[in-house]
Design a protein around this nucleic acid. Sequence first.
DNA 1: TTAAATGCAAATCGTTTGCATCTGT
DNA 2: ACAGATGCAAACGATTTGCATTTAA
Lengths: 147, 147
Amino acid sequence: MLYHRRSLLDELTAKGIRLTNQRRLLVEIIQNAEVHLDAATLLELAQQTDPGIDRATIYRTIELLKKHGLIDELDLMHLKGETLLRSQDSPRSRPSGVFRMRPDRRIFQRLFERLKAEISAQTGFEVKVARLELGGRCRYCGAAAKQ
Amino acid sequence: MLYHRRSLLDELTAKGIRLTNQRRLLVEIIQNAEVHLDAATLLELAQQTDPGIDRATIYRTIELLKKHGLIDELDLMHLKGETLLRSQDSPRSRPSGVFRMRPDRRIFQRLFERLKAEISAQTGFEVKVARLELGGRCRYCGAAAKQ
DNA sequence: TTAAATGCAAATCGTTTGCATCTGT
DNA sequence: ACAGATGCAAACGATTTGCATTTAA
């Protein structure tokens, strides 16, 4: 039930970008990540495979992927323009329980599109990018809500 | 056509928080700001009136106001829980063209509420906080779109 | 072969903290 | 009078940069 998207590696090759071992590794990690990654987590994960990899490389690669529009500015996943479910965490804390809405859930998409269209029509604001963040408790959350 | 909200100063007094000149100044700036402020901008604006005011005071005051729920964690305006229209800017750049949706526009509210409700019903995700960000071109934008 | 990518170390940026002094109540 | 707020300077963590070395094409 996965929706199709060309692999980041393919995209890089297509753009004629040099493929180093480090880039291959980082791209693979980002691609397979279940949750959003920050630079520190990405570094940590990468070092499990390549202990020699440097912070600078992490940041430079993130920058590269952003510049080519392959990952989202905010969340390091290739979610550009997609809607997100994000738990409310304190800014510094490790993101936990961050996941995205399945794009094949047409109900949300339709409602969301309608919301955007209505806003455009009523205000003259031409919507180009939209991001919806929802904080709260999911099915699998413990008793206490984070807030 | 402004909707009512108690002034931040009143809220502070009501909570028995000590009013210093610095706090009065900062609160006034935040209250009158047309756009979202970041710490650097707030400092800059404050120093135009009180050149001696220190960064630390800015950060401590922001922290204080956040702790009491008087400003939004993200944008330094007292917009807690309200829907926002925010232009797409690079993270480091000065926020420009940031404004909020008028809460009296029932059309949006109704659609937005319906979206949230639908998500709750379909996924079991209990929505507690929601933020909608839209990037694009408003009526008053120049010819060239930012993104 | 060579332009570009890497690792390393130092620099920089935004934010926070400890402490002596000042101020609101 | 005194708890709490401020300014100052140093500390901190995250990100960036310069440069010598390595690597993909």
